[in-house]
């Protein structure tokens, strides 16, 4: 007789459970609740196995660190900002995203990674805010926008790929090794133009073929740039409004209707949207 978690089980079950443990250890669970970029938490990434047409699913810190950030102090300064010698505050550098149109330009911190360390960020959906400027009493738009959060996903896909680039870092003060990643962004498609109407950008979502090419292809700079700027079709995406306090809600993807908000149309019919991405 054997014991598992202190409970008596058959030998057969014990062996089976031990085998199950190994499978559980290798299963690509998401391992993280709703991911907020500014937490610099870890996100699931498909990283090419060196020299092979194969990949590992790993977790990387979302927030690309350039090679000159090689101590934990520099990392904190980079991400949180710091007071310079003159007492003035140096703001943090936000490197959650890399602009596809800029990243390959000479001297850009993302250039080397775009050429040699491309990866795929696994996503089930993402969040953006639509800015709406209410009208004032005299009929003029007010200066302060009301922000409506949206959850955006790819139709009929539980997971999809975003183009990414990654960077390794070994902190010289602690010896700790980490991998950091930035998500590539491109110009918004018609759906995302309406939602992310303040910046009109969107992550570079890739088709399966482009994802394969991005990860494994021996690509010219021109082709890297082309793929990085790929605009995923709006018709294949879906979006819905969600609670303004979704970051702390039990189901952040739950659809919430705002009566005052003009409905999104093409490609984003709220009524057709599933109540949950995973529903």
């Amino acid at each position: 007789m054997c014991y598992y978690s202190g409970i008596k089980v058959t030998k057969e079950d014990f062996i089976w459970l031990k085998g199950l443990e190994k499978e559980v250890a290798n299963y690509p669970f998401l391992d993280r609740i709703l991911i907020n970029g500014f937490d610099y938490g870890k996100i699931p990434v498909l990283k090419r196995t060196e020299g092979k047409e194969d990949f590992d699913i790993v977790e990387m810190e979302w927030g690309f660190l350039p090679s000159y950030v090689n101590t934990t102090e520099k990392m904190m300064n980079h991400r949180r900002g710091y007071a310079g010698a003159d007492g003035k505050f140096r703001p943090p550098l936000t490197t959650l995203n890399a602009m596809s149109e800029e990243m390959l330009k000479p001297g850009k911190m993302f250039r080397s990674a775009a050429l040699t360390r491309r990866c795929l960020v696994l996503s089930s959906g993402f969040y953006e805010w639509r800015h709406v400027f209410p009208m004032g009493k005299k009929g003029q738009p007010l200066k302060t926008a009301v922000k409506y959060p949206h959850h955006i996903a790819v139709k009929d896909r539980k997971y999809f790929y975003m183009a990414g680039i990654w960077s390794p870092v070994t902190y010289t003060d602690t010896g700790e090794y980490a991998e950091t990643v930035a998500i590539i962004t491109t110009a918004a498609n018609p759906l995302m133009e309406k939602i992310h109407n303040s910046k009109k950008r969107m992550p570079t979502i890739l088709t399966d073929d482009l994802a394969y090419e991005w990860l494994f292809g021996d690509l010219s700079e021109e082709r890297i740039s082309e793929i990085a700027q790929y605009q995923f079709p709006a018709e294949q995406m879906e979006a819905c409004t969600i609670a303004k306090d979704f970051l702390s809600s039990v189901d952040p993807t739950a659809h919430v209707r705002f009566e005052e908000l003009e409905a999104l149309d093409a490609g984003a019919d709220d009524d057709k949207r599933q109540a949950s991405l995973f529903g």
Binding site: M1, Y4, K8, D13, L20, V24, A25, R32
Partner: peptide, 20 residues
């Protein structure tokens, strides 16, 4: 994070356990 499941004990009782 961790993983749980409901499995059978020797005497056919079911219980929740973490795996591993």
């Amino acid at each position: 994070p961790f993983t749980i499941s409901r499995i059978y004990s020797f005497d056919r009782q079911r219980f929740w356990t973490s795996i591993p």
